[in-house]
């Protein structure tokens, strides 16, 4: 029996029994963790709104075993808010749908509970902070997050040089299965020919060049989003439920 303390982002909540919830968090030190929060649905719960999705919290867990993840679900015993991103996200429907897709992506990329995923965690914290502040368009923040999540998990796409032979870009063709831009010689059946502006936008989102990204025209943003979701679906093998509700 041991106590653990970690900070994390609440990804998802599920109802459990009369007034409890199972909380799924992406934590800094333990990766994805599922824990039970007793009585959290009661109006006078000590947790209040701290364990709602998008919340960045410092949580104490009680586990029956010597590890946090393993022997049954740990209990959530105390929690403190670090940053309540939910407040800034839920007041705008486009931000909410984009944010939900981010949470689902983070959950899907951290398949193994208890395995640290620090880069994914830091990426999510940064993306939610940007989204809540409303500095950039929600779809752009979402696409940047999806591209960088793919990158930190080893699926970084290329938007310039050929993904197969390395021929310096710009290259005209884009193949989801080959890993991004491909040259004339390496193109495979099913490759698409996106506009150069859309590829430039995606490159800017991947590297964090917000000046270029914010100046992009809406039609290129839509085209880029289509490429990102096709690329993500290819690598996740199973589609994201929340992606089709994102307001574009």
């Amino acid at each position: 029996m041991s106590l653990f303390r970690d900070d994390g982002i609440v990804l998802r909540t599920q109802k459990l029994g009369e007034a409890d919830r199972i909380i799924t968090l992406l934590t800094r030190g333990h990766g994805r963790v599922r824990a039970v929060a007793r009585g959290v649905r009661r109006t006078k719960s000590k947790f209040g709104a701290r364990l709602e999705p998008f919340s960045h919290v410092d949580v104490q867990f009680f586990s029956k075993g010597s590890e946090l993840v393993g022997r049954g679900l740990p209990l959530c015993t105390q929690s403190e808010t670090i940053a309540p991103y939910g407040g800034g996200i839920v007041t705008d429907y486009a931000r909410y749908t984009a944010g939900t897709a981010m949470l689902e992506t983070a959950e899907r990329f951290t398949d193994h509970e208890g395995e640290p995923a620090v880069q994914q965690y830091l990426l999510l914290v940064g993306a939610l902070r940007t989204l809540a502040r409303g500095e950039h368009a929600p779809t752009l923040v979402l696409d940047a997050f999806l591209l960088r999540s793919l990158a930190v998990n080893g699926y970084a796409p290329t938007f310039g040089d050929c993904a197969k032979c390395g021929m310096p870009g710009p290259n005209r063709f884009f193949s989801v299965g080959s890993g991004g831009s491909v040259c004339v010689d390496c193109r495979v059946p099913g490759s698409v020919v996106p506009s150069p502006q859309a590829l430039e936008l995606l490159g800017a989102l991947l590297t964090g060049d917000w000046g270029t990204a914010d100046a992009a025209e809406p039609r290129y943003v839509r085209e880029g989003s289509g490429l990102v979701s096709a690329y993500l679906h290819w690598h996740l093998e199973r589609g994201l439920r929340s992606l089709r509700y994102v307001e574009k």
């Binding site: 000590k46 209040g48 709104a49 701290r50 709602e52 919340s55 808010t81 939910g86 407040g87």
Partner: peptide, 9 residues
């Protein structure tokens, strides 16, 4: 004192 930050806000 037990109210969380969001609710108190």
């Amino acid at each position: 004192e037990y109210a969380d930050e969001v609710t108190l806000g």
